[in-house]
């Protein structure tokens, strides 16, 4: 009974995770500029990947594999914001924000960008 429940739950998580990954990709394609795309990639990507790994943990029925999958999901949640943050920072320093429409940009006022990005 618990085995069946874990399997069904794992299947639901697998499908949900795939859908979030797909929506993240659609977001990266459709959103208008780098920073808004970054929202889609970092959130939907991390949640999608994490959900798929948790699904593996649920359907494996093996303690060591489940533990590894959960650690993998935690790793993903820790690193995705770090890489998004690095990329956002570098792009802002490179002057990317001049090509986007933003309603306010308090960072540009505080530190003017230092270079230009290659197209």
């Amino acid at each position: 009974m618990t085995a069946l429940l874990a399997t069904v739950l794992g299947c639901i998580l697998l499908l949900l995770g795939s859908c979030f990954a797909l929506l993240g990709a659609v977001g990266v394609l459709r959103l208008p500029d780098l920073y808004t795309r970054m929202h889609a990639a970092s959130k939907a990507g991390a949640v999608g990947g994490g959900m798929i790994l948790v699904a593996v943990a649920l359907v494996s029925f093996d303690a060591s594999i489940a533990l590894r999958a959960v650690i993998g999901a935690a790793f993903l949640l820790l690193t995705t914001p770090v890489s998004a943050h690095l990329l956002a920072r570098v792009s802002h320093r490179g002057g990317y924000h001049t090509q986007t429409t933003m309603f306010i940009d308090e960072l540009a006022a505080a530190s003017p960008s230092k270079g230009t990005l290659e197209q």
Binding site: G17, G45, G48, L87, L117
Partner: peptide, 23 residues
């Protein structure tokens, strides 16, 4: 169109590929 966009898309691509391998 810029290098940052490509890096971002590649980052997402590896996360999706990871999900693919897990599936």
């Amino acid at each position: 169109p810029t290098l940052s966009d490509r890096i971002l898309a590649l980052d997402l691509l590896t996360v999706i590929a990871m999900g693919f391998v897990a599936a």
